[in-house]
Design a protein around this nucleic acid. Structure first.
Lengths: 212, 212
DNA sequence: CTTGTTAATGAACGAATGTTCATTTATATA
DNA sequence: TATATAAATGAACATTCGTTCATTAACAAG
C-alpha cells in the first residue's frame, strides 16, 4: 500500500501536532517515540517525516505556536485596560483561564525546555520573557503610581507568574471550584501580595490590630 | 579485572545517588542512561545493579529521601513557633532556603513524578501532600483566629506553595539578590496575599484611597 | 590459610529508538 | 491522457537502552 485516499498534507500535520501535544504532556518528550505518535494518528512513523524534519522540530513547533498564540491573545485583550488595577485583574483572569484551557501546551512549554537544542531554546525563552514583560510592565506602572506597594518589581513578577501557573498542577474540572471562582480567589491574593486592597477590604481591617 | 581495591558498597551507592541526582535534574530521568550515571561514578553500568535493583528504584530513592528529609527538617523547626504569624514567616523562610539549598532534589521531585510507576508515585505523592498539610494547617489556624483573611484555605495553600517553589526557576547565586533578601521579599508578598499587613505597612496606607 | 561474601568487570541480550530509503498509490496540473 | 508531485507504506539502518550473567579480585571472618 502507499498513499491513502483522501489524505491531505496539512490535515495530517495537524493530527501529528495534536497527538504529540497530548503524548508529550502525559509522558514527557523523551519518553514518547515517533512510532507512538504515528500510532495515535493512524499512520506509520516514517510518514511523519513528510511533515516534520525531526522529532525535535515537532516539540519546537508546539512550544512556539503556543507562546505566539498566548502573546497574541493577550495583546488583543490588553488594549481594553487603561489603569494598572484593571490591567492586573485582567491579566490574572486571562492567564488562569488561558492556561486552564490549554493545559497540555502550557505544561509542555514549561517542562520540556531542557529537551530543546540551543537554537530552539533561545527562540522559546525569548517569547516567554516577552510575555512576562507584559506583567512586569503592569506592576511597574502601578508601583510608580503608588497604587501597588512593591519592593522589587522583577521578583513580584516572577512570584505572581509562578502562583498563577501553579493552578494547573491542582485544578480539575470535576473539582469543588469553577474556573471563575478560582479566578476570583487568585485576583484577591495577587492584589494582596502587592498590598493593594480593595476599598471594602481596607475598611474591614482593624487599624489598631498588631501584627508581626 | 574485577573488584577494585578500596571499594566499599555504601560509598559507591552514595556516589550513584549523587551522580543520578545531578544528571536527572539537568537532563531529565528519561534522557539519562544507566551508562552515563556509571561513567560519572567511574564504574561500569552493570556495577550499579549491586546497589539498586532498577533505574526506577534510583529515582524513587532520590525522591523519597528528599521528601523525608524535607519533612524532618521542617518538623524539627516548626516547634519553635507558637502563633500563626510567626509560623507562616518561618515556613516561608524555611521553604525558600531549603529549596534553594537542594535545587536538584527539589527539581526532580516536582518534575519526574510522571516517570514513576504507580506504587512509587503513591508513596511520593503522599509525602508531598503531608508537607503541604503543614502549611495548610498554619493558614487554617490563622484564618480561624481572624488574623489572615482567606477565602479558601486549600487554594491559598497551593498558591503560596507554587509561589515559593517558583523561586527555583529564576534564582541564581550570582544574581542581584541574596537568599535572605529574597526570603524577605516573599515573606511580605505571602502575608499580603493573605491580607495580613504588618503594623507599619497598615499605618502607611491611606484609609481614604479608592481602589478597585 | 581457607572460605564465603562483596563489589567490581566486560560481554551479551532482546527490545526500542530516530531516521532513511526505495517503492507505491492518490491527486493536481498540463 | 500523460506527467509531476504529494503522501503514504514497510523494510531496514545503526545506536542506544535497561538489564542479566559468568567471571574475577578484594576483603572479612573462621
Amino acid at each position: 500500500m502507499a498513499r491513502i485516499a483522501g489524505t491531505v498534507g496539512e490535515e495530517t500535520a495537524r493530527k501529528v501536532r495534536a497527538a504529540a501535544l497530548e503524548l508529550f504532556a502525559n509522558f514527557g518528550y523523551a519518553a514518547v517515540s515517533m512510532r507512538s505518535i504515528a500510532t495515535h494518528v493512524g499512520i506509520q512513523a516514517s510518514a511523519i517525516y513528510n511533515h516534520f524534519p525531526t522529532k525535535q522540530a515537532i516539540l519546537v513547533d508546539l512550544m512556539e505556536t503556543h507562546l505566539l498564540e498566548l502573546l497574541h491573545a493577550w495583546e488583543g485583550r490588553s488594549r481594553n485596560y487603561s489603569d494598572p488595577v484593571a490591567a492586573l485583574e485582567g491579566f490574572v483572569r486571562f492567564h488562569i483561564r488561558y492556561h486552564l484551557d490549554k493545559q497540555a501546551a502550557v505544561f509542555i512549554s514549561y517542562m520540556e525546555l531542557r529537551n530543546l537544542e540551543p537554537e530552539g531554546f533561545a527562540r522559546i525563552e525569548k517569547l516567554r520573557r516577552y510575555y512576562e514583560g507584559y506583567l512586569r510592565k503592569i506592576i511597574s506602572i502601578g508601583a510608580d503610581a503608588g497604587i501597588f506597594s512593591v519592593k522589587d518589581v522583577p521578583v513580584a513578577t516572577m512570584a505572581i507568574i509562578a502562583m498563577l501557573t501553579g493552578v494547573n498542577t491542582w485544578f480539575r474540572n470535576t473539582g469543588r471550584l469553577s474556573e471563575s471562582e478560582v479566578e476570583q480567589l487568585y485576583v484577591q491574593m495577587v492584589f494582596g501580595s502587592l498590598n493593594c486592597l480593595s476599598a471594602d477590604m481596607l475598611a474591614g481591617l482593624q487599624p489598631g490590630r498588631k501584627l508581626a
